[in-house]
């Protein structure tokens, strides 16, 4: 079942002097198994869209449907049991390390599965798998999450969500504050998870990462979808007008064009595909 946003509006602190509209009529469908990137400037509504998926926020009007779960402004239509939805949609917040609170890494990662009804052994089993999956080794199981480095904490927090085995993984700026290598590792992990059939929704500013991994790119501006399509189609779009940076490979293609080498950007995603395109053009 796809994820559907049906003319969703969201207003923070409605009716007070702090009132601010975050989403102004979002309607779109996200196919299962896709790798969708949500981009846009700060305050464009990306995080709000992500939180609506998990029913952490309830739309001011319209509805968000994930399988049999309905998160609607209409109380009668809204699903009552949200635990199932939260198991289905795993949400990794920005700087997720602050959610760690137990004394060992394995216990913390097992916390989610346990809340969703797994037995102690099952939860630990899932936790071990998830910890290994994010690229940490078995020596981390018994360590305290508070004694880890920033990047390791981030991995543990992500493992905490992966251990819940969600069908949809929503990642809010998962690479913020990580060094380039750690960002690449994280991206490789997300692609691997996506390849297993998990839908991934990635909220990010890093256009290089987005171009490399996403199969669909949605640009938000003032709570509205302004661009929606294949990432490489964005070559034609002036991203700077949405406070986004043009991907480095696209800038390189631009420079090549100025110097007389015309390349079609449709297959260029990363440095390797760029090199391949140059090679083909030369032949």
């Amino acid at each position: 079942m796809p994820i559907t946003y049906d003319s969703v509006h969201f207003v923070y602190a409605a009716g007070s002097p702090f009132e601010s509209a975050a989403l102004n009529g979002i309607s779109l469908v996200i196919e299962p198994g896709s790798f969708v990137a949500l981009v846009g400037r700060t305050g464009s509504g990306k995080s709000t869209m992500a939180q609506l998926l998990n029913a952490l926020l309830v739309p001011t009007s319209g509805e968000v449907v994930v399988d049999e779960f309905v998160n609607s402004a209409d109380k009668k239509k809204r699903s009552r049991k949200l635990k199932g939805l939260r198991k289905k949609v795993g949400l990794v917040f920005q700087f997720p390390e602050y959610q760690l609170f137990l004394d060992t890494v394995e216990k913390d990662v097992a916390y989610g599965p346990k809340n969703f009804g797994a037995s102690r052994e099952e939860a630990l089993e899932k936790a071990h798998q998830a910890i290994l999956e994010v690229g940490l080794d078995a020596s981390f199981f018994e360590r305290s999450p508070f004694a880890l480095s920033g990047g390791e904490k981030r991995k543990v927090a992500i493992a905490g969500i992966l251990a819940m085995e969600p069908d949809v993984l929503v990642l809010d700026e998962p690479t913020a504050g990580l060094d380039p290598e750690a960002s690449r590792e994280a991206l490789a992990l997300f692609r691997k998870i996506n390849a297993k059939g998990t839908t991934i929704i990635l909220v990010s500013h890093d256009m290089d990462l987005v171009l490399e991994a996403a199969t669909r790119l949605i640009v938000l501006e003032n709570g509205k979808v302004v661009k929606d399509g294949d990432p490489s189609s964005l070559f034609e779009v002036d991203l700077t007008s949405y406070a986004l940076e043009e991907p480095k490979v696209f800038r390189f293609v631009d420079l090549l064009k100025k110097n007389g080498l015309e390349l079609s950007p449709s297959n260029i995603r990363d440095v390797e595909s760029l090199a391949k395109a140059i090679k083909e053009a030369k032949q």
Partner: peptide, 16 residues
């Protein structure tokens, strides 16, 4: 704000 953020994060980990 921290309370709000942490509660949201833990809620999506199944805490009620």
């Amino acid at each position: 704000d921290d309370v709000d953020r942490i509660m949201k994060a833990q809620t999506s980990r199944g805490v009620d």
